[in-house]
Simulated assay, not measured.
Amino acid sequence: MKFKHQIKNQVLTLSLQGDLIGEDNGMDIIAMINDHIQNGVRSCIIDISGLRYINSSGIGVLITILTKFRNKGGEVCLLKPSENVQKLLIITKLNAIFQIAGSEEEALEVLKAA
């Protein structure tokens, strides 16, 4: 899996591509998230449009990110899940826990309202 990130207006945007299976990248992502949270970032958009597959460890990474932001009074919004990933979010009932948006503008509105 590949990931990249950027910060714009105190919102971290994390883009994930490939398969999120909690490999070494999971720990790298969490470490990067911790650094940004310590620097005052409280909102995160996770662009998952490029994810083909997520396993239970990958779900754990997403939940860890959500927990870290919410513990600091922040919020996370998942952006553009593919059809397969959307089905997984529904089956696991994570669609009730995560904010999900279809566009970056919608995600920013969700984060402003949180």
Rank of each mutant, 00 (worst) to 15 (best):
H36F: 10
H36V: 01
Q38I: 00
A31T: 08
F3N: 04
M32V: 02
N39V: 00
N34T: 12
H36I: 00
H5C: 07
I30Q: 07
L20Q: 03
I33D: 00
H36W: 04
L12G: 09
V41M: 10
G22A: 08
I7E: 09
D24S: 15
D19V: 06
E23R: 11
H5V: 03
L20D: 06
S15F: 09
D35V: 07
G18P: 05
G22M: 05
K8V: 03
S15W: 00
I29Y: 05
G40Y: 02
G22P: 03
A31V: 02
L16Q: 06
M27Q: 14
I33M: 00
A31F: 01
Q38F: 02
L16T: 02
N39L: 10
D19K: 12
F3R: 03
T13P: 07
N39E: 13
A31C: 05
Q17T: 12
N25M: 13
L16M: 06
L16C: 05
N39A: 11
T13V: 10
K8L: 08
D28L: 15
Q6G: 14
K8T: 07
I37Q: 00
G40S: 08
G40N: 06
K8E: 14
M32A: 11
F3C: 05
K4G: 12
N34P: 01
E23C: 11
N9P: 04
M32Q: 08
N34H: 12
L12E: 09
G26V: 01
Q10H: 12
L12A: 13
L20E: 04
E23W: 04
L12M: 15
K8G: 01
E23Q: 15
I30E: 13
Q6K: 13
Q6T: 13
L20R: 03
N9H: 13
M32Y: 04
T13Y: 04
I37S: 01
Q38A: 12
I33C: 01
K8R: 10
K8C: 05
G22R: 05
I7P: 08
Q10F: 10
D28P: 01
D28T: 07
D19E: 15
I29G: 08
V41R: 02
L16S: 06
D24K: 12
K4R: 11
H5G: 08
L16G: 05
Q17P: 02
V41N: 07
G18D: 08
L12I: 10
I29E: 06
D24Q: 15
A31E: 14
T13N: 07
L12W: 07
N25D: 15
K4S: 14
